[in-house]
Amino acid sequence: MRVFTAAIAIAVGILILGGYFYPPLAAVQTLLLNWAIILAGAATLVGVFNLIATHTYKIRRREKDSAYSALLIMGLAAALIFGIALRPEHQIMRAMMDGIIIPAEAALMGLLTVSLLYAAIRLLRRRADAMSIVFLVTAALLILGSATLPLGNIPLLDIFSRWTVQVLALGGARGIIIGVALGALTTGLRVLFGADRPYGGN
């Protein structure tokens, strides 16, 4: 069975990769990708059931904060029932979105700002090395360079900020992205040739 699943995965991977370079395989590639999209849709349903199962288990065992788990399941059920009955464009559904989901996400975004500021303040306590100092000084100078200050802009700071963002940061970012792309390529090849099998193989 393991050999069979690996053979299917490798064959599908090679066909999809081949579709990018050999035009006659493009139709097969599209078909296989469409199947993958359908499977990903089905996986979303399984993911939702997994979420329900995890939180139901927490409620049954009366674990800490299980009241939130109950709230989550009730919210999920309400959104599902109303969504199917009223359709997503309905006024009530829009009100749920505008009144609950968007404010909650906005609140988390605000919390994130505070978390990042707090993390920056604590960075030198956690890791006092040259890179941390460069990171903090650069962040502080860039914020100062882009902020509107009451006594006007600090001379040369906006030039420094622009140069840092357009030369140093952009160059560094490109280097990191190239490194990530190379890592993704070699990881993909390992999976393509069955060395790594995240689909049930030992």
Binding site: A36, G183, A184, R190, V191, P198
Partner: peptide
């Protein structure tokens, strides 16, 4: 990250580590 986009590489690396 999902498997159907460019972010699949990191997810596969994570799965290899998890294994």
């Amino acid at each position: 990250g999902g498997l159907l986009d460019a972010r699949g590489g990191s997810a596969l690396a994570g799965l290899a580590m998890l294994r």
